[in-house]
Design a protein around this nucleic acid. Structure first.
Length: 297
DNA sequence: TTGGGACCAATATCGTATCG
DNA sequence: CGATACGATATTGGTCCCAA
């Protein structure tokens, strides 16, 4: 007769590979989250990163038209590097991906920077994957800013870029940014942020600063990122939640906060009731996953 | 290729002991 | 008894990893 052990060894067939998310909770909560928010990810958190992403794809497209295909990625990466140096050096802002390498290069070598797709000039270990392309392309697509193959701006995004950004950059970057696009098409681009290129850096800074987001831009980003009006996949739930957040300044996503939001939106018609149900489900899920994660994760 | 978790470092907050 | 200093602990920010 075999004794039945109370505790057993790990069954290797049941064990998740690696140390990440050993309980496999990701699949559960991302599924629940997607029912409420259809477009954004936990990494796509900065409005200005969407600005930089749209300008990057615009520049890649200009280079494609002016100099032919095949350079999209390299042009995008060089633009992202330039934007990073401007944000760090001209704006003295942080909070963007690659901020550490950007700052340390500036500290070590000063405001004359080199842009290229080579790894020594990249601002992340793998800039294509960990930078804007890797982390903002997908949410950009689900928010109705990017589409197609090769990826291009949607008409709505193009309209914003042409109305808000190109006019402000034209004096220093050329009509439709063609001057900048031609420069970025070179393999290696030298930029002197404080010298010859100071006006360019200043102008890019004014477009990318977080301190000032003009009303027209604000409307655009609210419509596409917050409400995702043109590509809603949540049956209107995201819109009700967004409106609730704006009206009440709601930012508490602990289970208690979720339930509190649920009781408010439940009074706002059938969509509100549906949203309340999903928020309750999220609260239940969270109140199970969080302690289990603490105990066993 | 995607997207969020792990890991690490920096920063903020908390708790307690000590001082005036 | 309140203010302050300081170590411990928690949170946040940033980058990289890896399952799906």
């Amino acid at each position: 007769m075999q004794p039945t052990p109370f505790l057993t060894a790990w069954d290797p067939r049941q064990t998740l590979k690696g140390s990440r998310d050993p309980l496999g909770s990701m699949g559960l909560w991302t599924h629940q989250g997607r029912r409420i928010i259809g477009n954004l990810t936990t990494v796509s958190t900065q409005v200005r990163d969407f600005t930089a992403t749209m300008l990057g794809y615009h520049l890649a497209e200009r280079v494609r038209d002016l100099a032919g295909p095949g350079q999209d990625v390299a042009v995008f990466l060089k633009w992202e590097q330039l934007a990073a140096y401007v944000r760090a050096h001209v704006l003295d802002e942080g909070g963007f991906r690659g901020v550490e390498r950007t700052r340390s290069r500036l500290a070590a070598k000063g405001p004359r920077v080199t842009l290229s797709a080579r790894s020594e000039h990249q601002i992340l270990g793998d800039q294509k994957v960990y930078g804007l392309m890797g982390t903002y392309t997908m949410p950009g697509r689900s928010s109705g800013l990017l589409e197609g193959e090769p990826l291009r701006l949607t008409p709505a995004a193009r309209e914003l870029v042409e109305a808000e950004y190109l006019p402000r950059l034209a004096p220093v970057a050329g009509k439709r940014l063609d001057g900048l696009a031609r420069r970025l098409a070179a393999g290696e681009v030298k930029v002197d942020l404080d010298g010859r290129d100071a006006p360019l850096a200043e102008a890019i800074g004014k477009v990318l600063t977080r301190k000032r987001i003009p009303a027209a831009e604000r409307r655009f980003y609210q419509r596409h990122l917050l409400y995702n009006q043109d590509h809603d996949t949540t049956g209107g739930l995201q819109g009700v939640l967004a409106a609730h957040m704006l009206a009440r300044g709601h930012t508490d996503w602990e289970p208690a906060g979720l339930r509190q939001a649920a009781t408010v939106v439940a009074k706002q018609g059938p969509t509100g009731v549906a949203l309340a149900e999903e928020l309750e489900r999220a609260a239940v899920l969270e109140s199970v996953l969080a302690p289990v994660g603490v105990l066993f994760g």
